[in-house]
Design a protein around this nucleic acid. Structure first.
Lengths: 222, 222, 222, 222
DNA sequence: TATGAATGAGGCTTCATTCAT
DNA sequence: AATGAATGAAGCCTCATTCAT
């Protein structure tokens, strides 16, 4: 989680006593967003104190407000920062995919995990789900910027499968959820209940994904 | 379930409720838990003000603290109260089930929706997921009282299917999640992002469940 | 100044040790407005801390916000509270006045001093003048509710004098200011520079008013 | 007067100002005092942010504190700087005055308006009146450097009128206020309530002064 | 000198909790 | 048991001031 904020403290070599007042205008916003993401995911929006965020980013309370006018705007920035438009790239990637559609689904789930699910970014999904009711405009933003593009991508995959005769005719709108539900589930295991539970019950994400995908493909294939 | 949601479950018959004023005193804690559940689910723990809970329950702020020593204890009581041990009953019900295992899975999903998913009780799952990190002891309690029994119930169903040769050999531990993930997903649609989104995107639970179950069964059957 | 807030501490008799938590919903707002008036006049709006107001009213910080939603609203309430509609009464009083118009002017200045100038209420004029630019809406309110009625009252007096041939023809709109300027001046002596200056320079209001009135009447009479 | 307001007073003639960039360094404090005067007058001491002052003077926040060790010292410098000792000059001017004393009073009011009332310098009177209680030492300074000399000047004028038999015997100490009250009044119209009020109610200073002076002279003359 | 990023004390406001009635 | 006025700790945010560059 917060290991990244530690990394910055390790300069290339010299390791001089860190100057009391660093001047790092460029890096600050990113560091603050990093710290905020960690804390918001871990404790929720309300239970995270601005001062904590600042402290974890290695600055003082006031500095936070130099970059973000309010805790709420910080929250919004965290969400925006971590979603960005990676869908364009992914859409292209899947457009160019040449294998079978089942392989495509397998690949989709795998890279989702590698690129998002396993990263801190997955935390913001948990965050959004926890706070959606308190930030309806952010929820709308997330729906529009994340959920919809993701659904369209998945829908195209499923349609390809049906079109190519690999999949049975499907209720595609809802079959999409067959792919997203395990993702949500995994995120929740990682960031919520799963994080509060003894190791023994911990889910192994790769195994989980493999298991789900096979059942899914079996279920969708002819 | 809170007392009121039990009341709702009462068949349409006579059952004259005792005159409103009379049962107030004994009903108070239940009314408070009811109100608290609604608000906690809707706004989260931190964003819910004690006074609001009291107001919704029709009592004064002070009265709330007569029954629950703190907001945190109220929260815990809400969760505990709503995690009834109905698994004994359900276990028996499924023990006695006579149809095919695929039918059993269909039935399982359907009654889950009817008895839990569609009721306010589903709110505590959302609540637990949102607040687990802030209430680790509750999370453990929930894990033990709800998640584990539920998983065992589902596991027995799947094992029955495998044993009877209806299902392929499965990675049962993880196949269980194939059943629970859609439930979690549906709950989140209902209480979180789905609640902040235009009607058009609203998910029709019955259709969603039907779609998932068929894919699932297809995937698990021989 | 704040003597009035002391008065409340003297109950009819018993003089028991003041209970830690008084319950005085009725009296609170007035006490808070009293305290706030004193402090705002003395130190200005910004330099007055909410906690000070509360302390002077004998309550805790939080209690202030039970009655006024913000410091700014408190300020507005102070202004409104101290202006009220006393003009109706005064208008009647002057309508019924039977003596000469010069006597009327003398009487006007005298009762202004007795009823307003000499009281704490005069402080709000100083307050308004100091803060007008920061509270344009309040300034408009004050203009409308205080300045205009006052000017109309004075205008009627002057017109009476002209109509009855007691006064020369006057530029009445501006002659009104001949009456109000000394009032403003006196208020400023009392609440501003005059309050920061050695006793010797202190202005004796009665003597000041007498002096101004005589010059004024001399100047306006035929 | 601050340096810039002196510059403005320069006759229309040649007087090529040194190239902007060159004179910056020496002009800095004056530019800051200028900016500060405007803002303090407009918003009051507390509501004026140091950064705003710096920005209006075209320098950075840090630079302000290079010239003035604190906001409070800046305030004091603004006041001191704008309380120039021009009384020597004026005293001479009035010593040499040859016309009638009523003309002298007319002249006095007129040049006061032209040289002070109409300029930004009038702002410091508003400032002093608003902030006197928070800056008692400045108030004393102002009393000594401005109010007293001004009163003595006016007193001499009035005494001349009485001595020459132009005025009735007057309560001279207080008659002085008959001249200063309209000035104060006009300043307050300009910088306070009058600035927050629709155009229609705006006072025309020349007309106001003319009106007051005539009533006054009428009142004081034999 | 000048800059502007950084600081942190201090003020406003909220709200869980208490307690006299 | 119930009320709701009162409390005060705690959090957000501002802004005068500092200081490395």
């Amino acid at each position: 989680m917060s290991s990244s904020s530690n990394l910055k403290a390790v300069p290339a070599a010299a390791e001089t006593a860190p100057p009391r007042r660093e001047r790092r205008k460029e890096a600050r916003p990113g560091e603050l967003l990093d710290a905020a993401l960690d804390l918001f995911v871990e404790k929720g929006f309300a239970a995270t104190r601005s001062e904590e965020v600042a402290a974890r980013a290695g600055v003082s309370k006031g500095t936070l407000f130099l970059y973000f006018p309010s805790k709420e705007e910080l929250f919004k920035a965290v969400v925006r920062e971590n979603i960005s438009g990676r869908f364009a790239e992914w859409n292209e990637e899947f457009e160019a995919f040449e294998g079978s559609t089942p392989d495509m689904v397998r690949y989709c789930m795998r890279v989702w995990w590698e690129r998002l699910g396993a990263t801190r970014a997955s935390g913001i999904t948990k965050l959004m789900i926890s706070e959606a009711r308190n930030f309806p405009d952010l929820a709308a933003f997330y729906q529009q910027e994340v959920i919809q593009p993701a659904h369209e991508l998945m829908r195209r995959i499923l349609q390809r499968g049906v079109a190519r005769g690999e999949f049975r005719p499907l209720d595609i709108d809802y079959a999409v959820f067959s792919i997203s539900a395990p993702m949500i589930f995994l995120i929740m295991m990682k960031h919520s209940l799963g994080a509060c539970v003894p190791r023994d019950y911990a889910v192994d994400p790769e195994r989980y994904i493999a298991s789900q995908v096979e059942i899914l493909l079996n279920g969708m294939c002819k």
